[in-house]
Design a protein around this nucleic acid. Structure first.
Lengths: 216, 216
DNA sequence: AGTCGTCTTGACTAGTTAGTCAATAAACGG
DNA sequence: CCGTTTATTGACTAACTAGTCAAGACGACT
């Protein structure tokens, strides 16, 4: 099966893939359209033919990243009926997703550097963070009803918490490794960290833990 | 007191200040030496006279940021003898430090984007994260000895946890606000978030909470 | 085979950007 | 008050960078 000379869908996907890599590694300003074209073995004009400008290419890269995240989340099936086990699965899934595709973290950081400027320019942005948050909401509702979790847990808050604990560790790996002189990148160090996240989040969600509100 | 025409120390500081702003907002690649010079009302040559290259200027900016962090941490005095209250103070201090100087987060993200490349080029990098981590270590040791905290708490792990919870919320404010449709930037939303951090970290550190290790 | 619309390219440009050079002006030491 | 060191500048450049243009090649349909 020799590759066709003219294969627009394939060409478009290839540009998007190489652009994702380029922008994730070097940011929007650091990314070079010439380099993306060269890595695709295409003339630079193709980027402009399909995406019209560097900025619109970057927006397309962001859109595709969110789509990819959502699609992968859709494949995640939490089959257990134990809310505590389900929570643990969701946390481990989140960490693995960030670890296995580093472009997610780098592109999100880039977008936040620009205060959401490019994401706002995207039409189909609404309802990001779909499936995982829906599952978490379902898990927490059941956990609260069953009395396994403490009452009045907010799913978005819980999500933000373990998301922060997964994200920051991976995003700031390099400076933390230098500043703290601690191994952050080995498989075992990361495994230990996820275990810690599961422990602290479980403790926070499970019933039987005293509320500390009165202390403040 | 009219400003002297030749005031090298002042000039150098001004360049560093404007460069910090420029690189934090636009990153290393996005930052423009001409713009930094223009904002200082200086000719561009001054940047090269004092810092030799864009890269060395960026390294100087990073070094100065870490120094500033350390100096501010040194001013922080935790006077209480109650470890739980001390922990809360350290957490609130950390959040406020990140919130009040957004350049810290942006520069750290930039440095991690480059996998620590520039920080490694700095000579005087060792023993970053000084005073606050030392205080935390002291607080945790006392808390464990007094039986207020559970035994065998690792200070660096605790620091990484609340640091992640403070950092991620502020760093990813914009994308999260778009994706979740939730207010992240108002004073009250941020206050509620810090309260949550204090709650979850206190629960994790205080004795009397059951260890969950056996579950896994 | 010829025509049309889609896909692809080489060659070009106008503007920008990090970095340089030679000259000048202020402080300073004797 | 003169020579030297330290600060500061205007003018320049070589390389790069996003974006353009006109023309060519491929496939499909008649």
């Amino acid at each position: 099966m020799a590759r066709r000379h003219n294969d627009p869908a394939r060409t478009r996907e290839q540009i998007l893939a190489k652009a994702t890599d380029e922008f994730a590694r070097l940011g929007f300003e650091g990314g070079r359209v010439d380099r993306i074209a060269a890595r695709c073995n295409l003339s630079k004009n193709m980027l402009y033919y399909y995406f019209h400008s560097k900025e619109k290419l970057f927006v397309a890269v962001l859109e595709r990243m969110y789509e990819r995240m959502r699609d992968q989340q859709r494949d995640l099936a939490v089959r257990t009926s134990d809310p505590a086990v389900a929570l643990e699965q969701l946390i481990r899934y989140t960490f693995n997703a960030f670890r296995d595709d580093p472009t997610i973290i780098r592109l999100m950081n880039e977008e936040n550097k620009h205060k959401g400027k490019y994401l706002k320019k995207s039409q189909r942005v609404r309802d990001l963070y779909g499936p995982l948050l829906e599952t978490l909401t379902f898990v927490i509702e059941r956990g609260c009803k069953d009395g396994v979790f403490r009452p009045n847990l907010d799913p978005v808050t819980i999500y933000l918490m373990f998301c922060a604990l997964c994200y920051h560790y991976l995003s700031n790996q390099f400076t933390l490794e230098i500043a703290l002189g601690r191994d952050m990148s080995s498989e075992s160090a990361q495994q230990r960290w996820v275990d810690q996240i599961v422990e602290v989040m479980s403790l926070h969600c499970l019933a039987g833990s005293p509320s500390l509100r009165k202390i403040a």
